[in-house]
């Protein structure tokens, strides 16, 4: 409670100080009213009830506490995320329409499905990153990821079957990237497309697959139920919610990282005052106990980058996902 009040005061202080500080520097901006002066709309390209929706809603609640104006979440779904992503990029650049963008923005344009790339946004902050894991059935003979990798290397191409999401989805690219890092071709393991991670985990439990490469939080319920085992996680360090799962590097010396990330962004050309206010506010949101508790409860990966860092992160992800897609023969551009 004590913590909360202090942050509230701090937030109020920054809100008051921001125009004072920005005023003399930005000259004409002096005439502009303080942002946000009215409710802000936050677009979500994915449906209500999903993981991205949950992240955005908790961020919106904490932003409202921080900045004193309602942040209203609006789900703009359709077109496999294309519609919502495009709507954020095309919104008026007045700071009153922002949104959450996901790893798909660095994949869709390689498939030729949209013209919009990460360059069409003003990055504001990376709020979360879920790295892929490697899960096997609980009765699988492979006790660690090294055994699995050796068996894959020794097998004929296409004998092993893996799943986790649809063809060309983020977890398919994680598999392609991992195989590439081991010096194998992207289709050495046959990808079985599925309608998201849950059906893939079910098929794994029903002995229909050899392994899945969906994220660990998506596999969590099956891991808790003792139906599956996670052998490794493709991240630079272990996940705070799953400290027992080794990283790929620890387990087999292969350094390959990937992930489904989510970040807050706005249309290009946002006023500097909006960017600096949001940058600071998102930093405080991420540091708050509420956000930490939320991420831990869902098992989501705790990764943050400020506005500039998020921009660099997207540029890097765009190249690495593009490479994985080209290797898997999925890129059209």
């Amino acid at each position: 409670m004590h913590d909360l009040t202090r942050r509230g005061l701090l937030g109020a202080a920054t809100a008051l100080a921001a125009p004072l500080l920005a005023g003399p520097l930005a000259g004409p901006a002096l005439a502009q009213p303080k942002w946000p002066a009215r409710p802000v709309q936050m677009l979500c390209p994915w449906a209500a009830g999903g993981g991205t929706d949950a992240v955005l809603r908790i961020v919106a609640i904490l932003l409202e506490k921080e900045l004193g104006q309602p942040f209203n979440v609006v789900n703009r779904t359709g077109g496999s995320g294309v519609v919502g992503h495009a709507a954020i990029a095309a919104a008026p650049a007045d700071g009153y329409t922002l949104g959450i963008i996901t790893a798909e923005i660095c994949m869709l344009h390689w498939q030729g499905l949209t013209e919009v790339t990460y360059k069409n946004y003003t990055p504001l902050g990376l709020m979360n990153n879920d790295p892929p894991g490697i899960q096997v059935n609980i009765n699988s003979p492979y006790k660690d990821v090294k055994q699995l990798a050796d068996a894959i290397k020794a097998s004929t191409p296409g004998k092993f079957k893996a799943s986790g999401t649809g063809q060309g989805g983020i977890w398919h690219l994680a598999l392609a990237g991992w195989l590439g890092a081991m010096g194998l071709k992207a289709d050495h393991v046959r990808w079985v497309p599925s309608n998201g991670a849950a059906p893939a985990m079910q098929d794994l439990a029903a002995n229909g697959l050899d392994f899945t490469t969906c994220s660990v939080p998506e596999a969590r319920a099956m891991l808790d139920a003792g139906r599956a085992r996670s052998l490794a996680v493709m991240a630079p360090e272990r996940l705070s919610a799953f400290p027992n799962i080794p990283t790929l590097k620890e387990a087999m010396g292969v350094d390959y990282n990937s992930g489904a990330w989510r970040g807050i962004a706005g249309p290009p050309g946002l006023p500097a005052a909006v960017v600096s206010t949001m940058d600071a506010a998102l930093g405080k949101v991420f540091a708050s106990q509420e956000y930490k508790d939320f991420l831990n409860a869902r098992g989501f990966g705790m990764v943050y980058a400020d506005a500039a860092g998020f921009g660099e992160h997207m540029a890097k992800a765009d190249v690495s996902l593009g490479d994985a897609m080209k290797a898997a023969g999925l890129a059209k551009v």
Binding site: G50, Q202, M222, A297
Partner: peptide, 29 residues
């Protein structure tokens, strides 16, 4: 399946699973 394994049976339970996680009632045995 939603409560035991976090697998949604239909669109309604898919939304319900999200709410369960949100409220710290993580599906699982």
């Amino acid at each position: 399946p939603a409560l035991l394994f976090g697998i949604p049976g239909d669109t309604i339970t898919a939304i319900a699973i999200g709410v369960l996680y949100m409220k710290g009632l993580n599906p699982g045995p």
